[in-house]
Design a protein around this nucleic acid. Sequence first.
DNA 1: AACAGTTTTTGATTTATGTCAAAGGAATAG
DNA 2: CTATTCCTTTGACATAAATCAAAAACTGTT
Lengths: 185, 185
Amino acid sequence: MSLADFLLSLIPLDTEELEDILSHFEKEDIPKNTMLIAEGEISKRLYFTESGMGRSYYLKKDGKEITQWFFGSGKFMSSVDSFFQQSPSFYYLETLEDSVVFSITKEKLDQLFSNYQKMEQLGRLVSIEMLTKVVNKLNAIQFQTAKERYEYMLEEFPDISYRVALGHIASYLGMTQETLSRIRR
Amino acid sequence: MSLADFLLSLIPLDTEELEDILSHFEKEDIPKNTMLIAEGEISKRLYFTESGMGRSYYLKKDGKEITQWFFGSGKFMSSVDSFFQQSPSFYYLETLEDSVVFSITKEKLDQLFSNYQKMEQLGRLVSIEMLTKVVNKLNAIQFQTAKERYEYMLEEFPDISYRVALGHIASYLGMTQETLSRIRR
DNA sequence: AACAGTTTTTGATTTATGTCAAAGGAATAG
DNA sequence: CTATTCCTTTGACATAAATCAAAAACTGTT
């Protein structure tokens, strides 16, 4: 999904406004397995995924990677708190496939927020959508068996299950790779 | 924390604006154990908690209550998706203590959003703060032992642990009451 | 103060999932 | 095309936490 289509699906914009807003973003082609943000860095850019796939993850004390979220086409990805608070990121962000993204800096986004009330509104709508999804995942994780969690994932993100490595999905769902492998069989 | 203080802590407002914004809210005294929203209802109001405490919860298929979130002083409470999408609520919302709240309808809030860009901004900031907290909880729940989860709770919400029934906290943390009781000892 | 109801604690047992280890498959690079 | 590395599956065993059950400690009400 293109950024223009995404914007228009949430807020009405005339051609001029749309052009101006898009001009604040930069298109980038990013190869798979590229790190966009590392732990401890301050996230400089927010990325809109036009095509491809990314994930955020963090490292547990024992060094294990825990996938925190997957970002597919039509989604914004970033280390949310790091980008908005300009604080060191707790997460890594990387592409899992060759991706086309539109990125924007915090300064430019703030310009958009102050120039367009509609962009504030968009920010609010996107945040609430994300909040709802995270809450859904939390409920799924918190009181369901490993099998039910995998079924939740198949429903909520059907494409991810075959595009992404098993280990990434397992940690996303809060279980080991071995358990997920047994469930799938 | 009063609603006025809360607003001013996030966005600058002159006296007139503040007065006007506050006039859209209604103050209510709500006794403890009052149900504000039941499952299946469409949430009519968003509540700002000035004092007291509330929680949202849902029922599993087996009838067990799962606490989804606690709302203390200075927080907005509602069934987020139900209120903003005006869809049937998946959650119950109830007070756990006598509470003073300021409530607002969706129509009035939308008026505020369109009259004041600053209110859109506030909506965005509040959503992102909530998103960050939910993500933190998710991380805590997903890969920590029951004991570590309880410790996370003591840090993040120190007051809740002694104001709220054990069973409510246990389900919030994704464990049984018995387990939490053993951890506490 | 005593009762009824609720909430918390304690004990014994079961179970889902984690851990460790190794083998089998698939992907990537030279 | 072959070798190296990475990813997935399978097996045996360990363990944290759930379940079931009952006793003990609170709480509020008459």
